[in-house]
Design a protein around this nucleic acid. Structure first.
Lengths: 201, 201, 201, 201
DNA sequence: TTTTAACCGAGACGGTACGTCTTGTCTTATA
DNA sequence: TATAAGACAAGACGTACCGTCTCGGTTAAAA
């Protein structure tokens, strides 16, 4: 028979309130002003309870992203049968989010967190990429939509799915870092650029 | 007659040693461990001398980037008359730099600095983009090479120069943030993806 | 009929190992570094078992003193019929104990505990004062020896027993607190000082 | 010529307010509840300013004693020409101080501090012993009065000054630790006990 | 013989304070 | 008046313990 440890188990209440507080503070103050003490205070929790379960501030942010307490609006990537339109729609919703100051600040906070911690980097890619939470193994919805496009012969069989995904997401990141204004046609031009060369005729 | 101020002028020696110390410390310890006190100590300078001339840590990093004390190797973007080959060559050199741990750490440090400060974001794009230092107005060498390609009819006249540039650079940033291994064909596939749709026939 | 409780009784094993661990940790680390968690770990016991039976760290120390797990050597105060010689012998053994660093550290730890808790103060006086453990009502062996001296006409009937006791013990405490070196004649001079004025002729 | 360091000098304002805050907090909360953070807050000072100049809480208490911010009432030891009366007067004032709860708590706090730190131990002896502040080399006023008594033939030339001093002070410490009530005649009996044997006839 | 209550070990919890590190400002003496 | 040096108030860091409160498991008296 298996030997089980005794003593109290991890408090789910504490865990949730820590993640919620983390998300709220990132949204209001930014990652650069996020402090463990601030999270503990906001969550009504001892600091040690945070240090007991998370190894760093970045790990906290990574799990908050995963739990969906940071992005409450989803960047959904639909499959209407028209790959080009689906990608433009997704990109438009992301760029619209970035056109608000609060949106761009949030994304920059997350980029800073991702620069700190590779786990945050992976989570960010999933979440931003239309992630249905818990998509397997770091595969974003963009990649899955592209593969579906190949199945449906919207895209050539040897289309470089990974590179297309990274080109699209990377463009978004670059916009966030350089804070340049976005023109209305940006989404269309970008999708056309990365897609047309790989489309089936 | 002009009013002239008295007293000593700004010490160029101090300025150089501060920028050099900043570059050295970023390269060895990373942006996240960079402190003003550490820079002052390394440079043999008083803290006030730094605060007098730079408004923030990010401004220090931005100027260090501009002075070339951070990237000592340049990512040169040549014009051999073959746009595709030129871009692949540039991308290969960047990805080779990222394949070393010290390279990826340096780039992540700079992304963190760029997330803090938009001036760093612009400088980073210029420097990474094959920047001959001091290229005018945030225009990277990639963009200039693409425009030259249009002139030489390598590229269609209405090719979306900005979007192509951002797709390429963004892909590099995404690689740095997610730290995924790079396959040999990545550069070729990426350049083909963003270029073929816009090439003149 | 009396209402009796159910369930297991107090574990003597746990009690002994807690007191022993307390004594060992005071001797090795000092009272100022004594922690309940440390005692629990050393004793192989849960913290709650300590808190269930002792109200404070000082209470733990007081009981350890009483159980004799702290002073293993006794400062015995004999009655040879010569009061002066008996007191000098006792004082010499105490001062010899204090001449070792470990001895002075132990006594200082106990003084700190006594300053925290009056129960420890009383126990310390009994134990230090040649205490046969469990001497009744805070009466030290010194006081008992002095009273025996009055019975035997070694001392005047109205000799201030309490004051003589406190003068002798207090001098020891003062030595421990100020850590001054002890000269060979100190014990003799001190006993003569407090005794001669009260001796029968 | 001598090379002198540059930079600001130590702030006397900060030093005074730290010592004053230390004294106030010991008097109101006791040494066991004295915290560096509390002192910093009360003094309106950064913690680092305390750690810069004092190595420990005990060192802070030692200097506060020396500066006279802890005992505001002095236990003066006069020289009226009658040694016995002078010592009784001093002892009465000390015991009167101890008869108030606040007085006994203060002395116990200081004993705890003295157990921590030998410098506090020495300072306490001087201050308690009728110390005119800054008496040289750990010599209390009691010792000086006794020596004056020898000069004036109130006391035998070979009277053990140190032992008499320690017996008197030690008795006071013992009273503080055991918190026993003091009878009116205690001071007289104690002084008679330690003095009569050494008086000139 | 079952129930029940108190014991035990382990350890998570909300807290407080620790001693260190860094920030950005201010002060001093020098050049 | 710019500089190197560095003291200052402020405040976050990550650690150590506090005393309380679950947990499962065990044990002995009561029902």
């Amino acid at each position: 028979m298996t030997q089980r440890r005794s003593g109290p188990i991890r408090s789910e209440t504490a865990r949730r309130s820590i993640l919620t507080a983390t998300g709220a503070l990132i949204a209001t103050r930014g990652y650069e002003h996020l402090t463990i003490e601030g999270v503990a205070l906001e969550a009504g929790v001892g600091k040690q309870t945070i240090y007991r379960w998370w190894s760093s501030k970045s790990a906290l942010v990574a799990e908050s992203l995963l739990e969906g307490v940071i992005f409450n609006e989803q960047f959904t990537l639909a499959n209407t049968g028209d790959l080009h339109a689906d990608l433009v729609a997704w990109l438009d919703s992301v760029l619209a989010f970035l056109s608000e100051p609060s949106g761009i600040d949030l994304l920059r906070s997350l980029i800073a967190a991702a620069a700190d911690d590779e786990e945050v980097g992976r989570r960010l890619r999933e979440t931003l990429g239309g992630g249905s939470l818990g998509s397997p193994g770091g595969t974003s919805s963009i990649e899955m939509r592209l593969k579906a496009g190949i199945e449906a012969s919207e895209l050539m069989a040897d289309a470089p799915v990974t590179e297309i995904t990274e080109a699209l997401m990377g463009a978004v990141i670059i916009r966030a870092l350089s804070r340049q204004p976005v023109e209305p046609e940006t989404a269309t031009r970008l999708v056309r650029t990365v897609l047309r060369s790989n489309q089936s005729q």
